[in-house]
Amino acid sequence: MATLTASRSRFFRYASPATFYPLAGRLWPWFAAVAAVLALAGLAIGLLIAPTDATQGDSYRIIFIHVPAAWMSMFIYLVMAFYAVLTFVFQTRLSAMMMRALAPTGAMFTFIALWTGALWGKPTWGAWWVWDARLTSELILLFLYLGFMALQSAIDDTRRADRAGALVALVGVVNVPIIYFSVKWWNTLHQGASVSLTRAPSMAREMLIGMLLMALACWMYSIAVALVRVRALIVERERDAAWLREAGEA
């Protein structure tokens, strides 16, 4: 019982804003630096080293930002839903703040995925936009992010805002598998996945490495930005707390 309590308390130690705030402050510059290095390496490989595609020419190079952004747009929503579960199960304030901190980044990546897709679609498909299953469900994901953020900013009471937002995040999470599998289920214009864990990738190795580096850079960037934003949220909500005043931040 004693060991259980000990491990539980270690598990929950960083769920307290007072302990997480300095940790996030120490960590975020590292994540930001790693993101910058990875992005530079990924862009160098993607734009300079990777070969020109046999059928699409150089316009395929948009995938180095398009695919990572599309992955992040779905993954961040899943992470938000995970924090929503934590909010309901453990009633931790920090998980709700993390949810809130992640939403703008997720919305930004969704927008980037749609925007770069349009830039790529014009030369390749001949249209900026088609009402294809994957494009439409990605657009709905953007609306879900915007709805989540609109609801959060409309509620003044933080406890209610946290719980209402968590409920919306959980209800909307149904959309993520629909986006991910849409190219398989409906077989429409958007091509299927080029990268999969279960089979060899259908692209040159340099292309794959560039894309994976960019994806990692997007991960690190998301973590860094979320940590900075959650620090701002903590300061905003705990401005009257003694620990914050002792830290000399408020």
């Binding site: 709905i140 609306f143 879900l144 709805g147 609109a150 609801l151 409309a154 919306v168 909307g172 959309n175």
Partner: peptide, 16 residues
């Protein structure tokens, strides 16, 4: 009971 409730409902519900 939210002030912006009337505008929010469509934004929340229509995507679903």
């Amino acid at each position: 009971g939210l002030r912006a409730g009337g505008v929010l409902v469509p934004v929340l519900v229509l995507p679903l």
